[in-house]
Simulated assay, not measured.
Amino acid sequence: MTNIASKSVTYFIADLHLAPNRPDITACFISFLENQAPDADKLYILGDLFESWIGDDDDSTFVIDIANAIKTLSTTGTPVYFVHGNRDFLLGKRYAKKSGMELLPEISEIDLYGQKAVIMHGDTLCTRDVAYQAFRKKSRSWWWQAMIKSLPLFVRRKIAADYRKRSASATAMKSQDIMDVTDDEVILCLEQFQSQLLIHGHTHRPNRHAIEANNAAAERIVLGDWYEQGAWLKVSPNSIELLTQPFQQN
């Protein structure tokens, strides 16, 4: 059993896009939960854990297995926190409870070993993507979500599959500039929370950006996606590292 008193690291992950047709990503995630995450004070999942989410009533073996794996981690001493992404914003309290995760607001402020940090998925920072922001506003409304959740499970599965195809086509036609964050929005976010550190995912461009906010040096850290390898941010009292893990070869 992990010695909780010796823990002094926090992990952040995002953009895993777990799906049944990508067992390599799932295997890497399970390995991370079993080998790295138990040593952490906390694990933060900053959205897009799943490629799509059709509702907490999804009874597929795949989503149940993922819930059980996360629950095993949380019940053995590592709290797990979840921030919704643009792919899994319908994930609700029922599945969070089943997984042992605590749901956080879409923008949260945390204490990270004495430093105030703002965490989020990051899609709200991409204000140049006007079409997506319009869809985001509609899809977060109570009436839209109520309408979707009222549909039969098999219909929602088809809608999710169709959306993934349309999203891939739309993304391919957008410029990289449109899909990245807007600098002014980043500064506004940090100034709103009076913080010098922002951690987010969504853009799939892992990096550490030195910026200025609140008339002082600040940093924006972007988490990596899991399309080609596992990726996480490891933060300790004395270090910050963006790390990757190759997928296992069959």
Rank of each mutant, 00 (worst) to 15 (best):
K93S: 14
S6T: 15
H204S: 05
P20W: 01
K7Q: 10
K116E: 14
A14I: 06
L49Q: 06
M101H: 00
K71W: 12
C28E: 15
A37S: 08
T171Q: 06
N3Y: 05
A40P: 10
D183R: 10
I110M: 06
D225R: 01
S150Q: 05
L243S: 14
D184G: 10
R208M: 11
Y163G: 09
Q133F: 00
N215M: 05
A231R: 11
L223G: 04
Q229Y: 14
S141A: 07
D225F: 06
P20M: 01
G100Q: 03
K42E: 13
R22V: 03
Y95A: 04
Q249W: 00
T78I: 12
T78P: 08
V130R: 11
R157K: 13
D88Q: 11
D48N: 13
F89Q: 01
N21S: 04
A27H: 15
V83N: 03
P206D: 06
F82A: 07
G77E: 11
L188K: 09
S141N: 05
I64L: 13
N250G: 06
F247P: 09
A217T: 07
A218H: 07
K98T: 09
D41Q: 13
G230H: 07
L46D: 09
D24T: 12
T75W: 01
R136T: 05
A172R: 11
S195I: 04
L91D: 00
T182E: 13
N214F: 03
L49V: 06
H202I: 13
Q133S: 08
A160I: 03
I4K: 00
V155A: 15
T2N: 12
A217D: 10
D184V: 11
S60H: 06
I66W: 04
K98D: 05
A168T: 08
T171Y: 08
D177N: 10
V222W: 06
T244S: 04
L73P: 00
K138D: 13
W144L: 07
K71Q: 14
D225T: 02
N238P: 07
S141Y: 09
S236L: 08
Q196D: 10
Y81H: 11
D162E: 10
E212W: 07
T127I: 15
T78Q: 05
F62G: 01
